[in-house]
Amino acid sequence: MSWRAQGLRTWLLQRLSAVYMLLFAVSFGIYLLQHRPIDYTWWSDLFTRPAVVVASLLFFAALLYHAWVGVRDIMVDYIHDTVIRFTLWILVTLFLIAMGSWVSLILLSMVEI
């Protein structure tokens, strides 16, 4: 088996993205709970920190990748017409890329380096 093994690689990356999302969500949640009450200044300050922004960017990357593979899985299961499936998959991919770019723009506009 090599890293090029497509089925295994996709499956593994989807699992890893889930693990990262879980770790991020739990630790971020705990962090927020420790800093109650949360106000606007505190929140916007938080996202000026490069570490927080990088961790959040990774979270959204994992989320979008996870969704991308998941939606593809559903389409491979249910849509057997290659043309329709391919078209839908391109649309989903474009949508996820748009979402990814948008969230990156927001996060990167806040960070102070």
């Binding site: 088996m1 497509q6 089925g7 299961d77």
Partner: peptide, 18 residues
């Protein structure tokens, strides 16, 4: 082992299992 595993890779043969 290796041939068997290679053969099961790809999106369909085994990885359709959810």
């Amino acid at each position: 082992t290796n041939e068997r595993l290679q053969d099961l890779d790809g999106p369909y043969r085994m990885f359709r299992c959810h």
